[in-house]
Design a protein around this nucleic acid. Structure first.
Length: 399
RNA sequence: GGCGCCGUAGCCAAGUGGUAAGGCAGGAGUCUGCAAAACUCUGAUUCGGCGGUUCGAAUCCGCCCGGCGCCUCCA
């Protein structure tokens, strides 16, 4: 399989480092809102990667975190007058229900930041010892100057980033930073906010360190695939690399960085802060999960696209065609050969998960099966191939 | 301003030098008591614009126009 690696900006041949187990970490959600199409696109994409890796015979150890404590969730909890942890639990449950309805295989480990405090503290303490982080008033900051590679992933040079952040008056409330690009690893407790004990006093973890800690704890010092939405490249993933490599002293932290492009709606990026959300559960009220998956996957994961309200509906006929084709009895005539389609489908998937091309092949394949079955041909083998291919795309109706 | 992506029929879109796939929508037809479904047929002398390279360009180069994303809330 070839996968596009954001780190090198090219497609590279992918195989797990140990030849057997794919160690995959994908940034999960901050649970203060429910699942929208951007989330769906991201997690469906990694679901296909997950399924395809298993199809290739690898084991996949898939870890997806939950950022269940941060500024946004506390703010939202105050707004709606609900305890922050209950709000989190509720949103996590909704998220899991939505992805389950979309037939997304659950990750092997689903860690929450609040349950990973010991690992986080261990990492932060080590970074402080090594001079890669510093303590100010109970806050701990990562010293970006200690990492000459900072900015490599997002391809921003440090001078530009500094100039820009200065221009924007980055964190004007925080004169304790040595450098405006330094980011927080441990945040001292604020009044009326939850906190955990630490060597630097009560507080809570910074956003970026959580992911490095969870990836390290469950997958080890080096992972095969680190995924997430493209909006996380800077500063989140850039900072993860800096912390993780500073802590483990192994490079690279992630061999492949895979980023899913943004879903737009009404001309802008679909996002919680803009509020232009189309929720999975609303769409699934009127449409099948297969149609929604096919609609999403009819776009390549690295191309951003505009979500269209009639999108899922346009794929209902195809979902039905595929379902029907896997159930046709066929006849006792000559067997239908689908070797070409089989080859075309798996070539497409192997080429950086080209699901649009793969779906086209599936459409042709199903059409041929229907015609052949009506003509009395033996379609049992073709049906099996269709079932297998549709399984890699995670469709349910074809099982 | 920096970095990255994109501009092909009404919409989505394949196509990285050899003369424009496919899907959806639309139109026509078959079938049907009517309708729906299904099936068949049907659309770009042309690929944002202007130059250049070439026997030949949607594809390569330059410039221009337009759109999008990220640049410490975000999948």
């Amino acid at each position: 399989m070839r996968l596009y690696n954001s780190l090198t900006q090219r497609k590279e041949v992918f195989a797990p480092l140990d030849g057997e187990t794919v160690r995959m970490y994908v940034c999960g959600i901050t649970p203060y809102d429910t699942t929208h199409m951007g989330h769906a696109m991201t997690y469906v994409t990694f679901d296909v990667i997950n399924r395809y890796c298993q199809f290739l015979g690898w084991r996949v150890k898939y870890v997806q975190n939950v950022t269940d404590i941060d500024d946004d969730i506390l703010r939202k909890a105050r707004e709606v007058g609900e305890p922050w942890d209950r709000l989190g639990d509720r949103c996590i449950l909704q998220f899991q229900e939505d992805l389950n309805a979309l037939n997304v295989l659950p990750p092997a480990v689903y860690p929450r930041a609040t349950e990973e405090i010991p690992t986080i503290i261990e990492m932060v303490a080590t970074l402080v010892e090594r001079g890669m982080a510093y303590v100010r008033d109970g806050n701990v900051y990562f010293r970006v100057a200690s990492d000459p590679d900072y900015g490599h992933l997002c391809r921003c040079d440090a001078e530009t980033m500094i100039a820009l952040s200065a221009e924007r008056g980055a964190d004007p409330n925080d004169p304790r930073k040595e450098n405006p690009l330094d980011f927080i690893l441990w945040q001292a407790q604020q009044p009326n906010e939850p906190a955990w004990p630490s060597p630097w006093g009560p507080g809570r973890p910074g956003w970026h360190i959580e992911c490095s800690a969870m990836a390290y704890r469950y997958l080890g010092p080096q992972i095969d695939i680190h995924g997430g939405g493209g909006d996380l490249i800077y500063p989140h993933h850039e900072s993860e690399i800096a912390q993780a490599e500073g802590f483990t002293q192994q490079t690279p932290f992630a061999r492949f960085w895979v980023h899913v492009a943004m879903v737009r709606y009404q001309g802008e990026k679909m996002s919680k802060s803009l509020g232009n959300l189309v929720l999975v559960r609303d769409v699934l009220r009127d449409h099948t999960a297969d149609a929604l998956r096919l609609y999403l996957l009819s776009h390549h994961y690295r191309d951003s696209f505009e979500y269209e309200d009639d999108g899922p509906a346009r794929f209902e006929p195809l979902a039905e065609l595929l379902r029907r084709a896997t159930r046709l009895p066929g006849g006792s005539g000559p067997a239908l050969s689908v070797a070409d389609e089989h080859h075309a489908f798996f070539t497409a998937i192997a080429d950086d998960i080209d699901t649009p091309a793969a779906i086209s092949v599936l459409r042709d394949l199903a059409t041929r099966i229907v015609a052949a079955a009506e003509a009395g041909q033996d379609v049992s083998e073709a049906r099996e191939m269709l079932r297998q291919a549709a399984g890699v795309l995670g469709l349910q109706g074809t099982r």
